[in-house]
């Protein structure tokens, strides 16, 4: 170890197979994250929910759309742990199936926002000047409109469907990704390794994709975890307003919305979907916070 720099022409000690093993920077992030108990708890809840969503057909005791008028508006019981709704459908099964839609909408909408926002931000930050100004002013326009109203307008224009809902939520989230990525792209652009890449003849597209974006991943990831929570809330809100998922599909927002009429005699119809939303949002937020801390290079060492 000590002598490997000693002589210029070091004995040819190793060929490809003797290389020390790959240990990516993410491994270190994971190590730091592991120490943050709250973040690990948040992450576990999120993973648990994803597992529940994937295994919904196995876990759900009943068919979520099976109506049974005789059993309508039953309180929680051993047969129906979370009770039944006004059509006699099992609430537990509906919430389990609802997690599929909510998580799906959350992740896809964030994916749309992060990918397009990230690219726009990276381009703006890397080139600067007029192009940057143009992109960022467009983002400002989007930001000036309240997110939910923007999403309503987009769904209104495109029509109500699951895909349009995700696009609407994604677009309404675009500016924040563009902004955080642009901010870090501005710092990365000034780094010598970007200059080095230009000196070895890398094209702008290559620099943006290979140097700028990977080095902006930390803020994108943090924004994304917080964004998923927001997207789920937005989707729930749109569904609540009748612009998102249409009945009878089980979705937490629309369940909340339809349970509202029975708030007095069957509060559990709104309580459980609301609780589910809160748990996901809280878990994602705690996880996102922890992730931000462990991704912060200033805390290294």
């Amino acid at each position: 170890m000590n002598n490997e720099n000693g002589t210029l022409f070091a004995p040819s000690s190793g060929r490809t197979k003797e290389r020390e093993k790959r240990r990516s920077p993410w491994w270190e992030v994971w190590r730091r994250l592991r120490r943050n108990k709250a973040a690990v708890a948040g992450m576990s809840v999120v993973i648990l929910l994803v597992v529940v969503a994937v295994l919904a057909p196995v876990l759900a005791p009943y068919d979520p759309n099976q109506t049974n008028i005789k059993m309508r508006l039953q309180g929680p019981s051993s047969e129906h742990p979370l009770g039944t709704d006004n059509f006699g459908r099992d609430m537990l099964s509906r919430i389990i199936y609802g997690s599929r839609i909510s998580l799906y909408v959350g992740f896809v909408a964030v994916g749309i926002g992060a990918v397009f926002g990230g690219i726009l931000g990276a381009i703006g930050g890397y080139y600067g000047g007029r192009l940057d100004n143009f992109i960022m002013r467009c983002m400002d326009v989007l930001l000036a409109i309240p997110q939910i109203i923007l999403a309503i307008a987009i769904v209104g224009a495109l029509g109500t469907s699951l895909l349009n809902l995700m696009i609407a939520v994604g677009i309404s989230q675009l500016p924040r990704y563009a902004r955080v990525v642009r901010a870090s792209a501005l710092t990365v652009r000034g780094q010598e390794y970007v200059e080095a890449a230009r000196a070895v003849g890398a094209s702008d597209a290559r620099i943006i994709l290979e140097n700028i974006l990977p080095n902006c991943m930390a803020p994108i990831i943090v924004q994304s975890t917080l964004g998923v929570a927001q997207a789920i809330l937005s989707a729930a809100a749109l569904s609540f307003l009748g612009l998102g998922i249409q009945p009878p599909t089980a979705e937490w927002g629309s369940m909340l919305s339809s349970g509202r009429q029975f708030l007095r005699n069957a509060p559990y119809l709104t309580f459980f979907p609301g609780l589910a939303i809160s748990v996901v949002v809280l878990a994602l937020n705690i996880f996102g916070d922890g992730l931000r801390d462990s991704l912060d290079p200033k805390l290294r060492q």
């Binding site: 490997e4 210029l8 022409f9 070091a10 490809t16 290389r19 020390e20 240990r23």
Partner: peptide
């Protein structure tokens, strides 16, 4: 990859370090 190994040896770096990341090395290396 072989050219990189040769370059690393030329500047006095052991090719073992191929998969290392910059933060794992000191300033000289």
């Amino acid at each position: 990859e072989e050219m990189v190994d040769a370059l690393m040896e030329k500047v006095g770096l052991s090719p073992r370090l191929f998969y290392k990341y910059p933060h794992e090395l000191d300033g000289g290396r």
